[in-house]
Amino acid sequence: MTVDSKQSKMGAGVGFERIRRITGYLVGTMDKWNDAKKAEERDRVKHSIAK
């Protein structure tokens, strides 16, 4: 991952990385996910651990 050094000093235009699991594999950024899987990720709810 290389970022133009001047730009990164400022950070302008640099996004956050968001790592998620898809079909068992991790994907480093959701940019490359297809539309259906993006929608699925958006819909995921957290599961409580209360018994």
Partner: peptide, 21 residues
């Protein structure tokens, strides 16, 4: 929705506890 739920999974949008799931 834009997708079908994976295999036999409980739908990702369905509120449920980890243990029940």
């Amino acid at each position: 929705r834009e997708y079908y739920t994976n295999s036999f999974h409980v739908p990702v949008w369905y509120p449920i506890s980890a243990y029940e799931k």
